[in-house]
Amino acid sequence: MRCMHITSGLLSIVGAAFLFGTVHALVIDPIDISKVDLNTDGDVKGGRNNPSDPPVGPVDTTPETDTGSGEPPVDPPVSEPPVEIEVSDAILDAPVPEGTLTLRQAHKLWEDGAYFIDARHEHEFEEGHIQYAAWLASSLFDTDSDRAFSIANSMPPESTVVIYCVGGECDASHNVARRLAQIGFTDLRIMGVGYTDWVAAGFPTEEGSAP
């Protein structure tokens, strides 16, 4: 009998949670966990190399770690030519989930001046991120929507935006892509590899706080 009493109490809590959840679902905007249509072609539209869109794009693939405030670095001295990085094809063309970018494709877009969005946690971004990337986590749209929209609005909606997260089967970049698609971004791409692979390849990174 005592077990019955506890079980009935538990069912009451579950029932009440369903009731409150249903009411909650009715009063807020529908939530969306569908996949976003991603672009995988090689063209860059309205990237950050556009003269009106600072910061300027990268000029070489020199591995560097800028410990400054995230400002674009000054041109390197003429006497010190950029060091060419030997990255194996196996790393650059490592298999990625369908519809996402290989490291080679992502790096090409970066060189061409596409916008890069870091979808990891803010502290991870501050510890190091792809050079010129901006931080924008999906949860920011819920917790600080003004800041999220401010970051999103700093990029033209038709521009090419590459989103990345930790790597592997991480879902954070897909979540950010969905949010950006909802507000009108049309050329969204996702790095099938993650930040750790970018670092392992020796491509440029920098440290600095999020805007």
Binding site: H5, I6, T7, S8, G9, L10, S12, I13, V14, A16, A17, F18, F20, G21, T22, H24, A25
Partner: peptide, 23 residues
Amino acid sequence: FVIPWFELLAGLMLILGLRARSA
């Protein structure tokens, strides 16, 4: 939708000691 509300209800009931064993 359900899990957060379940957490809230069960947590409050535990604090109050209302049907606490069920919670």
